[in-house]
Design a binder for these strands. Structure first.
Length: 563
RNA sequence: UGGGGUGUCGUCAAGUGGUAAGACACAGGAUUUUGGUUCCUGCAUUCGGAGGUUCGAAUCCUCCCACCCCAGCCA
């Protein structure tokens, strides 16, 4: 695993940091931060940022803060801060005692704003939202200066103080930076830095009725925390001049903002808004639906934190917009689980098999190692009896070319058990469907091996009918059936929702060793894929498994090609 | 005739003037009591395009083209 080999990661951000370290910038200290807004759940795009910020800090003996950017109480909630903390912890990162909130700095931020007013660099503006928009101009036309732009420092000070005191209506006035209404960069056209907003804040309650805007709060929070490298996504590139402006005007510690491209993953969507839409409209069962690219969804699906961290390392960090193939994510979880998941047997669509020459009441305990390449994982006993279940797909009446599973007259191996040969089939008279197959077994092949050198091509997984446990299995697939569901401007992304993203199977049979498996525990169902016990819906009496990912399936590929 | 970015294999991505890493995907083959794993092999004479500089250019210069972001009192 690359995680263990840990070849030093390099990307343009780490290169900048290496240079800064060499130049002894910031006394060669590295301080980063992960600054989520608590208004939604974290997704794998955030994982990229978390791995970057915490990773860079760790690699350079630096520190990384977790800071909630909670400056808009109308959208934020404590539920989200709790889930975010849980997800960051689960991913494997530790902020120790450096858990911060932008709201911790509200008083300090207010004082900075006063300082700006005193310096003649900010003013209270009475224009309403629509007017401000009109005065801002357009992308190609410069804006107009607000008639309130020339108010005296004294008047601004008085008005701003009264804004804080709650003397004015929501939306009636704002504090604006006095920069340049003709700037080609719209962010510099006298941006709003404080608005009046009476909303219960999850941490400060009703202490404040004015709240700072992102551009003002973010750079100064970074500064206050002594951040050295403020890493954010590309859409903030245009904001960097403003980020720098505030820090320069206030003459405070000046972190360097660096932007990188956010993660896009094929066959899914990554915006909080769109994910929320899927949740609200019931297309998925919640933020932690195993089909969601949220960390809570991936966790419930069976992804390991290691696999996600490994994925984040492999995708790299750069500035170009890109779309990572979800096959890479799938590769990462297979790689991890192949190494660590115990092998067990489960039959998803059971087909009854009767071994006619096997003694009626006999039961044998056969040994089955938990991992073919790692004997330290031990083994379990598999009960074998006269009546078994095999996978429906593993029997064909008319076997196509290269099909080397069971069929009339054919011999196959039952994993860790015996060779069996099919002698006849029983069909449903109505549907003509095969409902039972009869076989004979070769007692000389116990354990699944013949000393006479006879070759069998197929090895099937199986369970004993009487000893197996019933289970529900959810087969998850990609959420969308289009690589880029948001790619067409005129088509709603939900048009491309994959109707087969979830198939629930209720009469599956799994081997008895799975009884009492802990929620979240992962195993490979041999020949099928990796599954985990659902953390919410599974119980001892009613097992429920989620399919994390299938095994690579070259037979399926062959079959698909023939069509 | 707004500003800011980005263009290297199907998808990510190294490369910073010395002759195109690696990963995923894909295609062959070997081994295999999982059609899994593992292991070999193949996969950009070419770096958005056109000129130019140079002994030498993905890297430097010029022009052009394409795509992304910005007109919240959201972050």
């Amino acid at each position: 695993m690359t995680t263990n080999d840990s070849v030093a990661l390099t990307d343009f951000i780490r290169n900048i940091i290496t240079e800064d370290l060499k130049a002894n910038k910031n006394e060669a200290r590295i301080v980063t931060r992960f600054p989520p807004e608590p208004n939604g759940y974290l997704h794998i795009g955030h994982a990229k940022s978390i791995c970057l910020n915490f990773g860079i800090a760790a690699e350079n003996k630096g520190i990384c803060n977790l800071r909630f950017d909670d400056t808009n109480p109308s959208k934020e909630d404590i539920e989200y801060v709790e889930s975010i903390k849980e997800d960051v912890r689960w991913l494997g990162f530790n902020w120790n005692d450096r858990l911060f909130y932008a709201s911790d700095y509200f008083e300090q931020l207010y004082q900075y704003a006063v300082q700006l007013v005193k310096a003649g660099k900010a003013y209270v503006c009475d224009l309403n939202a629509q007017e401000i928009r009109d005065y801002r101009g357009t992308l190609t036309k410069p804006g107009k200066e607000s008639p309130y732009r020339t108010r005296s420092v004294e008047e601004n000070l008085d008005l701003f103080e009264r804004m804080r005191a709650g003397e004015f209506e929501d939306g009636s006035r704002v504090l604006r930076a006095k920069i340049d209404m003709a700037s080609g960069n719209l962010n510099m056209r006298d941006p709003v830095i404080y608005r009046i907003l009476r909303a219960e804040h999850h941490r400060t309650g009703d202490k404040w009725c004015i709240y700072p805007m992102y551009d003002f709060a973010h750079c100064l929070s970074d500064s206050l925390e002594g951040i050295t490298h403020s890493i954010c996504t590309l859409e903030f590139e245009d904001h960097r001049p403003l980020y720098d402006w505030f820090l320069d005007e206030l003459n405070v510690h000046h972190p360097q903002q660096i932007e990188f491209a956010r993660l896009n993953l094929s066959y899914t969507v990554m915006s909080k808004r769109k994910l929320a839409e899927l949740v609200e409209q019931g297309h998925v069962t919640g933020w932690d639906d195993p089909r969601m690219p949220t960390l809570s969804g991936l966790r419930r699906r069976g992804y390991t934190p290691e696999s996600i961290r490994n994925f984040c390392e492999r995708i790299g960090v750069a500035k170009r917009d890109s779309m990572v193939d979800i096959a890479l994510l799938e590769h990462c979880i297979r790689e991890d689980l192949n190494q660590h998941a115990p092998r067990v047997m489960g039959v998803l669509r059971p087909l009854r098999v009767v071994i006619d020459n096997y003694p009626e009441d006999q039961i044998e305990e056969l040994d089955g190692p938990y991992h073919p390449e790692d004997s330290s994982m031990g083994s379990r006993k598999l009960p074998f009896s006269r009546v078994l279940y095999i996978e429906r797909d593993d029997f064909r009446e008319d076997p196509p070319k290269k099909f080397f599973r069971l069929s009339l007259g054919r011999e196959v191996r039952l994993r860790y058990a015996y060779y069996i040969k099919c002698t006849r089939v029983v069909k449903d008279e109505q549907t003509n469907e095969v409902v039972e197959v009869h076989c004979t077994y070769d007692p000389e092949t116990r354990g699944g091996w013949s000393s006479d050198g006879r070759k069998v091509r197929g090895t099937l997984h199986w369970v004993s009918a009487d000893h197996s446990l019933e289970a529900e299995v959810r087969l998850y697939d990609r959420l969308f059936d289009k690589a880029n569901p948001t790619g067409e401007k005129d088509t709603d992304f939900k048009t491309y929702l994959n109707p087969n993203s979830l198939e629930t199977l209720t009469s599956c049979r799994v081997e008895p060793s799975l009884a009492g498996e802990a929620p979240g525990s992962r195993s490979q169902f041999e020949r099928l894929g990796y599954f985990c016990v659902d953390a919410k819906d599974s119980s001892d009496g009613a097992l429920a498994f989620n399919r994390t990912v299938t095994l690579r399936d070259s037979w399926a590929k062959i079959e698909k090609r023939k069509k």
